[in-house]
Simulated scan of single mutants.
Amino acid sequence: MRPTALLFPILLALALPAAAIAQDQEPEAPQADPLVRAQLEALGYGFEVDADGDFKLLFDLEEGRSQLAYVISGTEEYGALQVREVWSPAYRTEGDAFPVDVANRLLQASHTGKLGAWVRQDDMAVLVVKVAAGATGAELDAAITYAIHVADGMEAELTNGQDEF
């Protein structure tokens, strides 16, 4: 018998218990960023932490409207830059794609907006504002305030005044 023929059953016998142990261990839930938590609390914002460890905020706006925002705990890096995202949804499509007029309006708004850009997240159009991961509480507040007002305005425009988000 060749030595490699003996090696395969030994490796298999070692691998099976390791695979079983790995399956029994549940992955850890993402943790909410403590810096963001402290900043949101200092700003007096109520929030929930979702299953992804992100902060979900609901704001009451003028004229009885409300607007949802998320502050994402995880950060993204590119070179020396590290950013965090603030999301605020504005539109939900019924089909597989956004209607052409809606998609074009969102592209136009991404071009003319001061901060952020419109993205498609599953069936929703979401304004995403990126801020430095170590942004101050005031900077985070400005990003959230901008996102919720712009997203709510776009929601009202695209849905004839409906208020889903």
Rank of each mutant, 00 (worst) to 15 (best):
A18H: 10
A19E: 08
I21L: 15
Q23Y: 09
Q23R: 09
D24K: 14
D24S: 14
Q25T: 14
P30D: 02
D33C: 04
D33N: 14
P34T: 00
P34C: 02
P34S: 02
L35T: 10
V36D: 07
A38I: 03
A38V: 07
Q39K: 10
Q39C: 05
L40R: 10
A42M: 06
L43T: 04
G44P: 07
G44W: 07
Y45V: 09
G46A: 15
G46L: 15
F47R: 09
E48Q: 15
V49N: 04
D50P: 10
F55C: 06
F55S: 02
L58V: 13
L58N: 14
F59C: 00
F59N: 01
L61P: 01
L61S: 04
G64P: 05
G64H: 08
R65A: 14
S66I: 13
Q67T: 11
Q67P: 05
L68K: 13
A69W: 06
A69K: 09
Y70K: 13
I72V: 15
S73W: 05
S73M: 09
G74D: 14
G74M: 12
G74L: 13
E77H: 00
E77S: 04
Y78T: 12
Y78A: 12
Y78N: 14
Q82M: 01
Q82C: 00
Q82D: 00
V83T: 08
R84W: 00
R84E: 00
E85M: 00
E85N: 06
W87Y: 11
P89V: 02
R92G: 02
T93V: 09
T93N: 05
T93Y: 03
E94H: 03
G95Y: 02
G95N: 07
D96G: 05
A97T: 03
F98L: 09
F98N: 04
P99W: 05
P99Y: 02
V100D: 12
V100Y: 08
D101K: 08
V102E: 05
N104G: 13
R105V: 08
L107S: 15
Q108V: 12
Q108A: 15
Q108C: 11
A109Q: 12
S110F: 06
H111P: 03
H111K: 13
T112L: 11
G113V: 07
K114Q: 13
K114C: 03
G116K: 02
W118C: 01
W118Y: 07
V119C: 01
V119L: 09
R120P: 00
R120I: 04
Q121L: 02
Q121W: 05
D123N: 06
M124P: 00
M124R: 10
A125W: 01
L127H: 09
V128E: 04
V129K: 00
K130I: 06
K130Q: 15
V131T: 12
A132Y: 08
A132M: 11
A132L: 15
A132F: 07
A132W: 06
G134E: 15
A135N: 08
T136Q: 12
T136I: 11
E139L: 07
L140M: 12
A142P: 04
A143H: 06
A143K: 03
T145G: 12
T145S: 14
T145M: 07
Y146D: 04
A147I: 11
A147K: 10
I148D: 06
H149M: 03
D152C: 13
G153E: 00
E155C: 05
L158N: 07
T159E: 03
N160E: 15
G161S: 07
Q162P: 10
Q162H: 14
E164D: 11
